[in-house]
Simulated assay, not measured.
Amino acid sequence: MDVRPLTEPEGPAPEQIGKALERGLTYLQNHQYPNGEFCCYIAADKLMQGPCVPDHTVLPTAAIASALLALADHPKAVAILTRTIPFFDYQMMRGGVVNFFALRNPLFQLNPPDADSTACVAAFLDAWGVIYPRNSVRALLLANQRGGAGIGNWFVLRPRLMRQRTYWRTGLRALKAPLASWRFWQQHGYSRNDRGGVANANVLHYLSVDGSSLHILDYLVALVRNRKETDRDPRYRTPITFYYALGRCYRANPTPFEGVRSLVLERLMTFRQPNGGFGESLLETAQALSALSAWGGKPEIIRQAANVLLAGQQYYGEWPRALHFYASLGSPLGWGSEELTTGFCLEAIMAYQRWEQQEMANT
């Protein structure tokens, strides 16, 4: 990890934070496509130092937009988020579901819409007060549940009696190119029964905890208790992302997750590096900082991670690219970009700032 060593025992000063946020938002504003999308590359190495190919996708832009909600009162963030709305509106399919790949991507025809992308886009639109087929999205997500084992990743037909017309229209889409679709699934190692902790945490964050989503809550808690945070998850391979996503649910409603809070904090610490960062990249450090701020980690650990993050900001205000979204099980290919890392870093810095303000208020 290319960062300067820690020398200060305290966290970043408010003026440092303000400058970092301003530079990061300026970078994102200058690098957003005219249609509202953000660049995302596909590469084979985790730090993306080798060949990188631009790829049109939806979920990375949704992740950036969701992260920038933490800065929703900043004029530059407002301008960025407003530009993403037409992009998301154009990508929504029948019933409001969303595909990981953008419409202009050739793989859009082969890949089914997924719960993760759909929940992330819908949660952002909800937060931004945008009208979309909300009732349909919620109904389709709940219809995709897997008998107490959380929500399935893919919107595909399952052997069950369903009376929702939109459910059948969405699932039958794969029959448009059955052979090519089958080859795509075989090539990437996907399964109709795929499910994942991060996707389910994103769905729960969107739905919130209530009687209809308790099975998702139980599934997520069981993943933590049984050390299966990345079990059968074809898209995310680091548990840090899971703790980050689950932390958003904890921040919204701590009570259902109090029983696993100590486990989450203990396991997050296993990824801590000697310099105070986490994982193998600044992207993972950013997600860890957001998670620690949400779950209530030790103050000195949180402040050191914040120092590492600010030290890692680059010349134009960005943070280095690193893989985040993965293509398939057993494949090194994945997606990432400076824009994606920068979005997570800005969110983490804001989370740190609010945590620090709370700490000061409590003393």
Results as ranks from 00 to 15, higher is better:
residue 2 D to Q: 14
residue 3 V to E: 08
residue 8 E to D: 14
residue 10 E to P: 02
residue 12 P to M: 03
residue 20 A to S: 06
residue 23 R to S: 15
residue 24 G to I: 00
residue 27 Y to W: 08
residue 27 Y to T: 05
residue 31 H to K: 15
residue 33 Y to D: 14
residue 38 F to M: 09
residue 40 C to S: 12
residue 46 K to C: 13
residue 47 L to I: 13
residue 49 Q to N: 15
residue 51 P to D: 15
residue 53 V to F: 15
residue 54 P to K: 13
residue 55 D to C: 15
residue 55 D to Y: 08
residue 55 D to R: 10
residue 60 P to Y: 04
residue 62 A to S: 12
residue 65 A to T: 08
residue 68 L to E: 00
residue 68 L to W: 01
residue 68 L to D: 01
residue 69 L to Q: 12
residue 69 L to R: 12
residue 71 L to W: 05
residue 71 L to M: 08
residue 74 H to Q: 11
residue 75 P to H: 15
residue 77 A to N: 06
residue 80 I to C: 10
residue 80 I to P: 07
residue 91 Q to S: 06
residue 94 R to Q: 07
residue 99 N to M: 02
residue 101 F to L: 06
residue 101 F to A: 05
residue 103 L to R: 04
residue 104 R to I: 11
residue 106 P to V: 02
residue 108 F to K: 06
residue 109 Q to I: 10
residue 110 L to Q: 02
residue 112 P to S: 06
residue 112 P to G: 04
residue 113 P to G: 03
residue 115 A to W: 00
residue 117 S to N: 06
residue 117 S to D: 06
residue 120 C to V: 14
residue 120 C to E: 11
residue 121 V to L: 03
residue 121 V to E: 01
residue 121 V to Y: 00
residue 122 A to N: 00
residue 123 A to R: 07
residue 123 A to G: 11
residue 123 A to Q: 10
residue 130 V to P: 00
residue 131 I to W: 07
residue 134 R to N: 09
residue 135 N to R: 15
residue 139 A to R: 09
residue 144 N to K: 03
residue 144 N to L: 03
residue 144 N to Q: 07
residue 145 Q to L: 14
residue 147 G to S: 14
residue 150 G to P: 04
residue 157 L to N: 11
residue 159 P to Y: 15
residue 162 M to C: 12
residue 163 R to W: 13
residue 167 Y to D: 00
residue 169 R to F: 10
residue 179 L to K: 11
residue 182 W to G: 01
residue 187 Q to C: 13
residue 190 Y to C: 07
residue 196 G to I: 01
residue 201 A to L: 10
residue 204 L to P: 01
residue 207 L to V: 05
residue 209 V to M: 07
residue 209 V to Q: 05
residue 213 S to A: 14
residue 219 Y to M: 05
residue 220 L to N: 01
residue 224 V to Y: 01
residue 224 V to P: 01
residue 231 D to F: 13
residue 231 D to Y: 14
residue 232 R to K: 10
residue 235 R to W: 14
residue 239 P to T: 09
residue 244 Y to E: 12
residue 244 Y to D: 12
residue 253 N to K: 14
residue 253 N to H: 13
residue 255 T to K: 12
residue 256 P to F: 06
residue 258 E to A: 14
residue 260 V to S: 04
residue 261 R to H: 09
residue 268 L to M: 12
residue 274 P to Y: 12
residue 274 P to H: 11
residue 274 P to I: 14
residue 275 N to G: 11
residue 276 G to E: 02
residue 288 A to F: 10
residue 289 L to K: 07
residue 291 A to D: 07
residue 291 A to C: 11
residue 295 W to F: 11
residue 296 G to H: 09
residue 296 G to S: 12
residue 297 G to N: 06
residue 298 K to R: 14
residue 300 E to L: 10
residue 302 I to H: 02
residue 303 R to L: 03
residue 303 R to I: 03
residue 307 N to E: 07
residue 308 V to R: 00
residue 310 L to H: 03
residue 312 G to T: 03
residue 318 E to T: 02
residue 318 E to L: 03
residue 320 P to H: 07
residue 325 F to E: 06
residue 329 L to S: 09
residue 330 G to D: 09
residue 331 S to L: 15
residue 331 S to C: 13
residue 343 G to L: 04
residue 343 G to Q: 03
residue 345 C to I: 05
residue 347 E to M: 12
residue 355 W to S: 07
residue 356 E to P: 01
residue 356 E to A: 07
residue 356 E to H: 08
residue 359 E to S: 04
residue 360 M to W: 04
residue 361 A to E: 04
residue 361 A to K: 10
residue 362 N to A: 15
